[in-house]
Write a protein that binds this DNA or RNA. Structure first.
Length: 153
DNA sequence: GCCAACGTTGGC
DNA sequence: GCCAACGTTGGC
């Protein structure tokens, strides 16, 4: 079982939006980066857990935990003309983009801000802290997982 | 295959 | 709104 960090802008899709969903399950759609696509298609599996990270907001940080409940499958928003993520290069016959389904495990009682993460010596190597990191999904080590989970209590 | 121009991300 | 950093695009 692997650990991940999933970024989302809360103005677009927040942890409370997920909580409001039927069964607190949602597809994680809209990824349009090949490296992250490969993770969604090949590496991220049912039972994996991920931090739900709020980006481009004040403050940014980890809002809670989700669990993967469906393995990678084609992201149909890519062939939806109405979607912001429409991509004419992707078709049902030859899908270019993938997504997984996630289910809310918990919203942290204590939101773990980026600032707190930065100040924690055990978290210095997190990819989220690397300048210029452009991946909306990044792997998380077991130690990082445990530290942040503890901070969220 | 190079690389300049452009677009996007995301913290501040 | 700024801007650094990176990915993508497209002409050559």
């Amino acid at each position: 079982m692997n650990y991940w960090l999933f970024k989302s802008e809360p103005s677009c899709f927040s942890i409370d939006d997920l909580r409001a969903r039927n069964k607190q399950i949602s597809c994680w759609d809209g990824v349009r980066n090949y490296q992250v696509r490969n993770m969604l298609r090949d590496e991220i599996k049912i039972g994996d857990k991920a931090f739900f990270y709020h980006s481009s907001c004040t403050p940014p940080g980890v809002a809670g935990i989700v669990e993967v409940v469906k393995n990678g499958y084609p992201d149909h928003t890519a062939w939806d003309l109405q979607s912001d993520h429409f991509d004419p290069g992707s078709t049902p016959e030859n899908p270019r983009w993938y997504m997984v389904d996630v289910k809310l495990v918990k919203k942290f009682p204590h939101f773990v801000s980026l600032d707190e993460i930065r100040r924690q010596s055990h978290l210095k190597k997190m990819l989220i802290l690397r300048k210029g990191n452009r991946l909306s999904i990044t792997p998380v080590t077991k130690e990082e997982w445990q530290v942040i989970t503890e901070m969220g209590k």
